[in-house]
């Protein structure tokens, strides 16, 4: 089997998911595939139907229509077979607080055939909880509960790990550790499905992303690809901006972007003094540097800036209010 077909192997396939609660359609037209070994982001503002969708993926909520296939098993037909391939934390990692971490893991290990004690020891080591594993869970910090939750999810050696807003409530150090941890797990060949309302999170962690708004998936694709749809900007800082602007004007290979039309992070722009924002191909940059220098314009800096996913999201959901 070639590596190309291996990467195309589909671990999770969601087809035309729909959920109606009461008379209100909460989820409609949600479809996407998660491939083996990739980190798949699921991005949407709060209340967009992220959690409802995730609950349907793990059989906590039954879809009104549509199919969820996990490693070839339809979760609506054989939930126990499909769930054997999934490890998950839905919202907060809630465990039995009156038991120790170890007892909790034993409890969940008993629910799946073929998990020996050695596997429990193994996952405890993976998440680095060895020191406190025999303490009661009620004495754990949120970060430790998160680790215990992940340990629980890893017990059955799942092909797909589903984490719902995993960075919620963690401090910056915890978030950084979690991010590294997720990368490490992905390198071991596990697929990840990570939901977030934080766009920077997805950008930092994920290979591909599905964007959901109002219960509907509005875009699916590689994070970089989606970003490039909006276009990359080239920012110029020169000593005579007016002269440079004059030169860029009405050129075929350069397009000046007006102040109010760009999708760049305000905080990034505020640190720059009077930048000229342009859109141009990468291979044109050198030629333009030469022409500006030849015209006696001093160049302070030239930089290429990608619009953030946040701006992409704004573009995709134009006119919709984000919570």
């Amino acid at each position: 089997m070639s590596t190309a077909t291996q990467t195309k192997e589909i671990v999770l396939s969601v087809q035309g998911l729909r959920k109606v609660i009461g008379r209100k359609p909460i989820i409609h037209r949600v479809s996407f595939d998660v491939h083996a070994g990739e980190i798949f982001g699921f991005l949407g503002p709060n209340g967009s139907g992220k959690t409802t969708t995730i609950r349907m993926l793990v059989d906590l909520i039954k879809p009104t229509s549509g199919k969820i296939i996990v490693c070839g098993e339809d979760i609506g037909v054989h939930p126990e077979r499909a769930l054997a391939h999934i490890g998950c934390i839905v919202e907060n990692p809630e465990m039995y607080s009156f038991m120790t971490g170890w007892e909790n893991l034993e409890h969940f290990a008993r629910m799946q055939a073929g998990i020996p004690v050695s596997r429990i020891t193994e996952v405890v080591e993976i998440v680095g909880l060895d020191q406190r594993i025999h303490d009661k869970v009620k004495t754990y910090s949120l970060g430790m509960r998160q680790r215990l939750g992940i340990a629980q999810a890893l017990l059955g050696k799942p092909k797909l790990l589903i984490l719902d807003e995993p960075t919620n409530g963690l401090d910056p150090k915890g978030i950084k550790e979690l991010r590294e941890f997720i990368r490490k797990l992905a390198e071991s060949g596990m697929s990840m499905f990570i939901s977030s309302h934080l766009l920077s999170e997805i950008q930092l962690m994920c290979d591909r992303v599905a964007i959901i708004a109002h219960g509907e998936v509005i875009a699916v694709g590689e994070v970089d690809e989606l970003v490039s749809q909006v276009g990359t900007y080239t920012l110029w800082q020169v000593d005579r901006p007016e002269a440079a602007r004059e030169m860029f004007k009405d050129q075929l290979d350069v397009q000046i972007v007006p102040e109010d039309k760009h999708q760049i992070d305000e905080s990034l722009l505020s640190s720059l003094h009077d930048p000229i924002i342009t859109i141009m191909d990468e291979d044109r940059v050198t030629g333009w540097v030469n022409r500006l220098v030849a015209a006696g314009i001093g160049i302070h800096s030239v930089q290429r800036v990608a619009p953030s996913l946040e701006e992409l999201f704004l573009k995709l959901t134009e006119g919709e209010k984000i919570g």
Binding site: P79, E80, R81, L83, I86, C88, E94, F108, Q112
Partner: peptide
């Protein structure tokens, strides 16, 4: 009420 049902019911058991 403690939320543990989410862990309990997402294990591969009917």
């Amino acid at each position: 009420s403690t939320g543990t049902i989410k862990m309990l019911l997402t294990r591969p058991v009917r």
